[in-house]
């Protein structure tokens, strides 16, 4: 029936658009709305993204067990995990952990792999030439030039978790920089089933980094801060990281303290990854690897939702992939040696 009133839409083309922002009193532009909206949105975005300190990055780390002597070892092997955000190197002496490191992945995967290995060996006189077998894993594994073999990160994480937490582990949640995997394995750390999300940043480390960057809070402090709430708030309603970021800004501006926003965000992430876990089922024992295993705010909430606790390990959860790769290298080298003799 609107077609009975054609006069209603007269002047639709010619009448100018008036554009305002709620912050300012004045009118900002009275020309075509297309260009005006672009200019305004650009200006708003511009002020929002001016971070100088990179709060979102995990600090680089390395460790070496100086009670061990590599010169006395029969087999020296290494595993390199070149991830989307960080890269790790693990060096084993006769299948026992000797040195490891975790560094940021740069724009070049070969350089990142070498950087990780050099970082792990920095306080030793062991060098790459003396390591006969290196296995590469992670999303940049095909670009580890000195690796003899590449193995998927799923197999490596299961193997690494088996070493870190023991043979009773059956379910592993690996929360990496840009993906999240739920893995089932047997008592030897062999993968029996897995599911992964690598399509969407929600439920991955990248989602957490976006929040750390937004709030200018060092990433390692997010978990403890998120637990400082008296009452658990509801989770942020947006799944999408882009929308969740907008929602977090809204919550802060509406007066929510930072801890409450963090709690709300950590809970949403925990719900997201437990949904993935529940699709393959959770069998005991349960173990978490990857950078987010270091975020106690997410881990505690996952445990609460699932009603089970995750096994602890004294080792850094981020090295699981590289450790698994190094263990595979050790087994492969041993097999080679046996073949020769």
């Amino acid at each position: 029936m609107i077609l009975d009133f054609p006069q209603l839409i007269s002047q639709w083309e010619t009448l100018p658009v008036h554009v305002f922002t709620a912050h300012e009193k004045g009118e900002i532009l009275t020309i075509g709305a297309g260009t005006a909206s672009g200019a305004v949105s650009g200006a708003i975005q511009g002020t929002a993204s001016g971070a100088v300190t990179e709060h979102w990055k995990w600090p680089e780390q390395s460790n070496v067990d100086l009670s061990m002597d590599w010169k006395k070892a029969a087999r020296i092997t290494a595993g390199i995990d070149v991830g989307s955000v960080s890269s790790q190197a693990v060096v084993l002496l006769d299948g026992k952990l000797y040195a490891w490191s975790s560094v940021r992945t740069g724009s070049s995967s070969p350089d990142s792999a070498l950087k990780a290995l050099n970082q792990a060996l920095k306080n030793t006189d062991l060098t790459l030439e003396k390591i006969p077998y290196v296995v590469g894993t992670g999303y940049g594994r095909v670009n580890v030039p000195f690796a003899k073999k590449t193995i998927t990160e799923i197999a490596c994480h299961a193997r690494g978790a088996n070493y870190m937490g023991g043979g009773t582990i059956r379910t592993i949640l690996d929360m990496g920089g840009q993906d999240c995997k739920a893995i089932h394995c047997d008592e030897k750390g062999k993968v029996t089933n897995f599911l992964m999300n690598d399509k969407c940043a929600a439920g991955t480390g990248r989602g957490m980094e976006v929040l750390a960057d937004l709030l200018r809070i060092p990433i390692q402090e997010i978990g403890p801060l998120s637990l400082k709430v008296e009452e658990e708030p509801p989770p942020v309603s947006s799944v999408c990281v882009v929308f969740a970021k907008t929602e977090a800004i809204g919550l802060l501006k509406s007066g929510w303290p930072v801890e409450k926003v963090l709690a709300s965000y950590c809970l949403a992430m925990a719900e997201r990854v437990t949904a993935l876990l529940n699709r393959i089922g959770v069998e005991k024992d349960f173990f978490i690897t990857g950078g987010i295993a270091k975020n106690i705010g997410v881990v505690k909430r996952i445990e609460r939702i699932l009603g089970i606790s995750a096994l602890n390990s004294a080792l850094d959860s981020q090295i699981a992939g590289a450790l698994g790769a190094a263990l595979f290298a050790n087994a492969l080298l041993e097999k080679e040696e046996r073949g020769k003799s």
Binding site: F5, Q7, L8, I9, S10, Q11, W12, L15, P16, V17, H18, V19, F20, T21, A22, H23, E27, A33, A36, S37, V40, S41, I44, G250, K253, S254
Partner: peptide, 30 residues
């Protein structure tokens, strides 16, 4: 804003976080 004479205002406003107040302002401007 419409009347039988046709369209008499087209206003666009980028709101702040107070949606209700921004909406009132947008209507007032229109």
């Amino acid at each position: 804003i419409l009347s039988e004479k046709g369209v008499s205002a087209k206003v666009k406003l980028f709101p702040d976080l107070d949606m209700a107040q921004s909406a009132r302002k947008a209507l007032e401007e229109a």
